[in-house]
């Protein structure tokens, strides 16, 4: 965790994959990719490949977990056993995926209009098919699109991205190599309309100034990510429009 050993992550001001410190990896989002799910989205964010599916609102089961005042959200984040370049992974939940599922759920509890559906549940599934750092943030960004396409009313369309630090440089959107040997990693999810933070995790070392710089980077990147999300939600309808205009 010292700056010295990490110098190699940034050479001549550029990162190992050629990016500038505040540059995002290429992002592609596609909505409505699954036939059965009420809403779905596929995201390619750098080398991450993630699919999100949403079901509901439907009757909350088992009965005792239902809330007579509002809908509950169930969320599962999972990494496929073939998702990494290393050894075959173990399937099933582990401590990491349980925590990520929980914080992802909490992001959406904030923006979904749960009081419209008392006694119901909304299921969000995030399946990481290939992972390369930043899967929780890419997963949240995709799940937001999946929820929007399902038609479930939301107050806002959240996005997420991580920031971190290598030596003295604050960097945006860490890939796996950077994530493994950076001095700090800080995933953030934001509700852009109110500009509020819905998820914030961090480990490593950051000064107050560092955090300030990282937050500005996250917000600036958010304008672009939000635009991609909106375009992805509209795209299936644009296709229909084109068909009828012909």
């Amino acid at each position: 965790m010292s700056g010295g050993e990490n110098q190699e992550l940034i050479i001549n001001g550029k990162r190992l994959d050629g990016r500038m410190p505040d540059e995002l990896r290429p992002i592609k989002i596609e909505a409505n990719v699954l036939h059965n799910a009420d809403g779905s989205a596929y995201i390619e964010w750098g080398n991450n490949k993630i699919i999100a599916g949403v079901y509901g609102p439907k009757e909350a089961l088992p009965k005792h977990i239902s809330d007579p005042e509002r809908a509950i959200i169930k969320c599962r984040y999972q990494m496929a056993p073939f998702s990494s370049l290393e050894e075959h992974g173990r399937s099933g939940p582990n401590r990491r995926s349980i925590e990520i599922s929980k914080v992802t759920k909490e992001v959406f509890e904030n923006v979904v209009m749960l009081d419209h559906f008392p006694g119901s549940e909304i299921d969000i599934f995030v399946e990481v098919l290939q992972g390369d750092g930043g899967t929780r943030t890419a997963g949240i960004t995709a799940a937001a699109v999946a929820l929007a396409t399902s038609g479930i009313p939301m107050r806002d369309l959240p996005f997420a991205v991580s920031a971190g630090k290598v030596g003295d440089t604050i960097i945006l959107d860490l890939n796996k190599i950077e994530d493994n040997s950076s001095d700090a990693d800080m995933p953030v999810a934001v509700s852009p309309r109110t500009n509020t933070v819905l998820l914030l995790q961090m480990d490593g070392e950051l000064t107050r100034q560092d955090i300030n710089t990282a937050f500005s980077m996250v917000q600036k990147a958010g304008t672009y990510i939000s635009k991609l999300q909106r375009e992805a939600i509209k795209a299936p309808y644009e296709k229909i429009k084109d068909k009828y205009n012909k």
Partner: peptide, 17 residues
Amino acid sequence: TSAELLPLASPHYDIGP
């Protein structure tokens, strides 16, 4: 060989073993 009937694949699939 293993198979996962992912819950996002169908309203009839659930989380679990």
